[in-house]
Design a protein around this nucleic acid. Sequence first.
DNA 1: TCTTGTGGTGGAAGCGCTTCCACGGGTGGG
DNA 2: CCCACCCGTGGAAGCGCTTCCACCACAAGA
Lengths: 326, 326
Amino acid sequence: MVGKQRDATLDDVARLAGVSVATASRVLSGRGPASKAARHRVASAAAELHYVPHAAARALATRSGTRIAVVVGGQTAHVLNDPYVGRVVTATAEVAAAHEVGVSLHWLPLHDPAELGRLAEHRGIGGIVLLNPTRPALDVVPKSARGRIAAIGIGSRDVPSFDVDNAAGTASVVGHLFAGGRRRVAMITGAPWLPCTERAVAAYRRVVDEAGAPPRLVPGDFTAARGEVAAAEIMTRWPDTDAVFALGDLSALGALSALRRAGVDVPGDVAVAGFDDIAFAALSRLTTATHPVEDIAAGAATAVLDRRTTAPLTRYPSTLVLRESA
Amino acid sequence: MVGKQRDATLDDVARLAGVSVATASRVLSGRGPASKAARHRVASAAAELHYVPHAAARALATRSGTRIAVVVGGQTAHVLNDPYVGRVVTATAEVAAAHEVGVSLHWLPLHDPAELGRLAEHRGIGGIVLLNPTRPALDVVPKSARGRIAAIGIGSRDVPSFDVDNAAGTASVVGHLFAGGRRRVAMITGAPWLPCTERAVAAYRRVVDEAGAPPRLVPGDFTAARGEVAAAEIMTRWPDTDAVFALGDLSALGALSALRRAGVDVPGDVAVAGFDDIAFAALSRLTTATHPVEDIAAGAATAVLDRRTTAPLTRYPSTLVLRESA
DNA sequence: TCTTGTGGTGGAAGCGCTTCCACGGGTGGG
DNA sequence: CCCACCCGTGGAAGCGCTTCCACCACAAGA
């Protein structure tokens, strides 16, 4: 039987290494001075005992948190009520596990940063990952926590945040549409107040503009239901539309479904493309661009754990996935 | 500004209530004796100060964990690589947040319980939620943790676990197929080694048997890709099949897609039904039965937090959702 | 009246870690 | 050769909570 005796404590490591707990602590946490000799002996003692620091004790002593909070804005909540949040939380929980911390999920009204401030002050929280935060929301955290913890965003505009390269992804999809001979390309956007939507729309406008075509924009909200309705709106307003690009595969699939049901030949009459490359895109033969949600979330979680609050905007590449729909 | 001063500690509460920290601790944790008077004064003091116990300190003192671990069996991992795990983790993280704990996610080879035992012994873990565990896997936890923590399963057979009522759900769907006049109903199963698959298959057999029809079983694995292939297998082996029930909407959707692409009229020639009622089922007009994953996960998480390791099998009801595919 | 209980209580010792601080023995310069 | 000085070190004081244990009323039995 392995490990039947109690887990090794820092005391055990120190004793085995022949140093004091103070020294052991210093080398293991990498803070404070320590001679090469001490450093080495402590390290091997720790390895030998399979020492794993007790997260709770450490959190207590350092007044740091024991878990990282993933917070979703209230307004955004229903809109993100798709696998997206689940994927973020899952990926975060996975990197968290490796760092001896946990993850908790919070739905907060981000337009009122007070509540977020309260969360940041909370002694149990060691870091915060905000989904699509606004600038003031992101700013309130360091202020409330007085620099104790880091907060970084996923998918915000001009603040430290991680996200897919919306602009490039959008450009590649829309570009492909034109390259395929389409000329009247409409777009179903994401939730209008989200930064990622803005970026994507801007990219769409640019490509369409370069092609000398007029933009055809219909607001969306990432849902399949809205995609269905939006597709109908598009075909009513601009019957000669020959391609639809939806921000988010769910909406794209909704549009695809509505179009086909209306007797439109896809991709014959109208091409349809999405963004995200969710599992269902493959099944439905949807042309789209990838969105490495897990990688992004893992990056964000790692940054928060490292207290890298000043991380630059990090954009993950999106690659085009060609299938039958466009 | 709210809460700019440091969070209230048990000491503050005790002082305000005019009792010792020992007494305050007793009433707040509900353990040990306390007079009505003390009980009341501590309670109101705590309320007044918005006291929230420091999870890390408590965990340190009680040698309990600070997070609940969600573990997915290695063999099961790739098979559950769909939104399912994400939904479980998300729901768990949400109830965990209310209890001042976090959740971490672990992919472990459950056929070798040693690793799981190691996890159970780990000082940071306060409870374990196993996805589709086998009996030995579930048993190793209390043994390794010596009763320190609770482990409960989601979707296991005859052990304390939470799950949807697979049998009833399956029966209702298959029953509906027969009620609609179908007579040669095939089934695409889930991963064969999972208990939930067994239960569903048994229910399918029963209904088919009562209808005097022969069973037509093809193994599945919950994926859309497998659903596509399985549908083809079915139509080859039993060309007169007039209905396909797949355990899991992903497989059902895969089957639906493959069938239509092969020129089969659904639901005209062949009816297709699934199980889970995932978001996409609605979009594809798939008839299915609900699977309240979030409720189940929340129930499991709550049980673990309450250390209710001896919980009985809890089966959540599944309701039939009629749409166009069957 | 004097034991024996009670149920309620507070003091104090940890849980495992970090970190302040004082202290030692080596260097270098004067 | 002595005095700074500094690097490396260990002692010890917490972090906020739980819980053992001794202790104090009282109330009830003898």
